[in-house]
Design a protein around this nucleic acid. Structure first.
Lengths: 344, 344
DNA sequence: TGTTAGCACTCTCCCTTAATGAGTGCTAAT
DNA sequence: ATTAGCACTCATTAAGGGAGAGTGCTAACA
């Protein structure tokens, strides 16, 4: 069977109606609202065909049709007309970033709030991929006689830190010497490289103090690794309540509990493609718990180097057109802003 | 009318039954389950009295009674028998802290998770009151030619930082000199004192560079203030779904949205008394949105100096006895642990 | 005088039944 | 190929009607 022009028109009408109303769509509705000069009966025949082809589903015999995931996919790939943001929305987004903070955590957090506000879905934004962030400064700061703080400052203004126990007999000058060595070794390298470039040079210097060396390595890896997962920012988790199909308490709790699992969210977004906007619909999701949701992701970059990912999670009957535009625009806006801030 | 021994017994029975079942309690139930050798009819008379006195309420004519907020208050103040934690629970709590991390954020976060896990309510824990935290180290770290990082390390391992723009002509040596001055001035002072002790000494030194001085002051206040509100850790926000009276989507959303308002939660907990466990029941709450909830708070300290507050938010029919014990124990355990870690 | 049994009454909850209406699929006419 | 007509299906809603839990009141009882 063939997907003629008319079938596509009908499919599009059904999908768009279902997206806005959330109710199964009947043939009469299509004929009236999206009049293509065709009678309901004809539309019924076409709908029957579309169902057979797998683009539509019927909740029960005497209800209208709803799109299947395959239907949405077709819609997103072929039928979607890109929707430009309204000027006020675009300005709203831009204005947010006309701000004073240089703390990237704040910026990312704000991004998640705006995304969820504008789209009315749940937003997940990952902080900059630490492996791509550049080291600007490393220092061992003595706190008291027993502890020092290993501090790593990056070009994005992130500060990582970890406590280190100082073995007896290690003095301030020694810490300073090690600090200088670390700086010499790692400045302007990415955090990703740190884990690779061995500390051998330093080891020679430190061979006298095996114990300290080990705890230093521990602290370094801790300060790099631990954060990786914790940098997940959520916005609008309760937006899911806006959609009647999730008025069920069980589902709502499932969803919210899912959003608490930062590692899962991290994995979910981290593996999205490197460039552009990507759409994952319902069953296409790897994660079984998310089979009822669609996810739209985009990336942001600094100086053209991809640094992180942002995502929107919502029901499969998502406003794809609008949301894709928002994500695209947001990705670019954030990238510009960050590049201006941190490219120096 | 007088509150005789028997009336108290009956009130206690009703409250405890209602706490566990969530259903209005009838006279027959009391007679059977909590047999005091009294017939349902007599109990009915007593219940009628208790209602007249304001300790009980009746959802509708032919239902059993439920406790009023005033009833709960009486129960908490006079009828509660302290419930000791089971050994396994006590051990569970203690074990959590046998841990390696010195990051207080982690410890606080974990505390909120445990609290919500054990109690099955929502936990809110405030990070250490910054005004009481001691400065261990202040440093201006040059990042590149344009920016430096003002870094403040405290005795609790917290690191606050803020970016500063370096005016042209300011060199590394100058930053070091200022760092030393700041350290000299503020080491072992509390953050609260910083905002008071004027920077005059430093100003003399820096009078040559008005602009830099101002941005330094800005950064200092920023690094102290901003965090105050952001340090609110939540655990078990979806636990509210466990209680049938909150199966209503509207209520659930209201609650969850409330929990997103960190400033409100901060204010709520920050003003609780300095020592010991405190209970706020339903209408006693200042915050109108929380009139349907009860809050139990406790504080934790380092070396006997109160540093922060933890709270449990749940329905008014909360297991007061159990929860109060947990909070008491948790406050003490956390205090001990922190004191051991950070008293040096 | 306090306590209790008995009884009529109230109100919620749940089940059944029936009516409504939106929507379909099929058939036959155009 | 399209469409009007019609019988059929099924979810939703409203109304009716026990059943059950609980009360308040009265009168009897210790």
């Amino acid at each position: 069977m063939d997907l003629g022009e008319r079938k596509l028109q009908i499919l599009q009408a059904i999908i768009e109606d279902y997206i806005t109303t959330g109710e199964p769509v009947g043939s009469r509705t299509i004929a009236k609202k999206y009049g293509i000069g065709i009678s309901p009966a004809t539309i019924r025949n076409e709908m029957s065909d579309l169902e057979e082809m797998g683009y539509l589903e019927q909740p029960h015999t005497s209800a209208g049709r709803i799109p299947s995931d395959k239907g949405y996919r077709l819609y997103v790939d072929r039928l979607l007309k890109a929707e430009r943001l309204s000027i006020s929305e675009a300005n709203y987004i831009k204005d947010i970033y006309d701000n004073k903070t240089r703390h990237i955590e704040q910026i990312i957090f704000q991004t998640s709030k705006i995304l969820s506000d504008i789209t009315n879905y749940t937003a997940v934004v990952l902080g900059p991929k630490l492996s791509r962030v550049l080291v600007k400064h490393i220092q061992l700061v003595p706190i008291d006689n027993h502890f020092a703080l290993l501090m790593v400052v990056t070009n994005t203004g992130i500060v990582r830190d970890a406590m280190i126990t100082i073995p007896p007999g290690v003095g301030v000058e020694y810490l300073t010497r090690i600090s200088n060595l670390l700086n010499h070794l790692y400045r302007d390298k990415s955090l990703g490289e740190i884990s690779l470039v061995p500390l051998i040079e330093v080891r020679d210097e430190m061979i006298q103090n095996r114990e300290f060396f080990n705890s230093l390595v521990d602290a370094l890896t801790e300060s790099i690794d631990i954060g990786e997962v914790s940098e997940v920012y959520l916005g609008g988790t309760t937006n899911i309540f806006n959609y009647p199909e999730y008025h069920d308490i069980i589902k709502a709790k499932e969803f919210l509990d899912l959003m608490e699992q930062k590692e899962l969210l991290y994995k979910l977004l981290a593996k999205s493609p490197d460039k552009g906007v990507s759409v994952t619909i319902g069953e296409e999701n790897q994660c079984a718990e998310l089979r009822d949701y669609s996810i739209i992701t985009a990336t942001y970059n600094i100086n053209g180097k991809t640094m992180g990912t942002m995502g929107i999670i919502g029901p499969t009957r998502m406003e794809y057109s609008k949301t894709i535009s928002v994500m695209d625009f947001m990705g670019k806006t954030l990238s510009n802003y960050l590049t201006r801030l941190f490219s120096s």
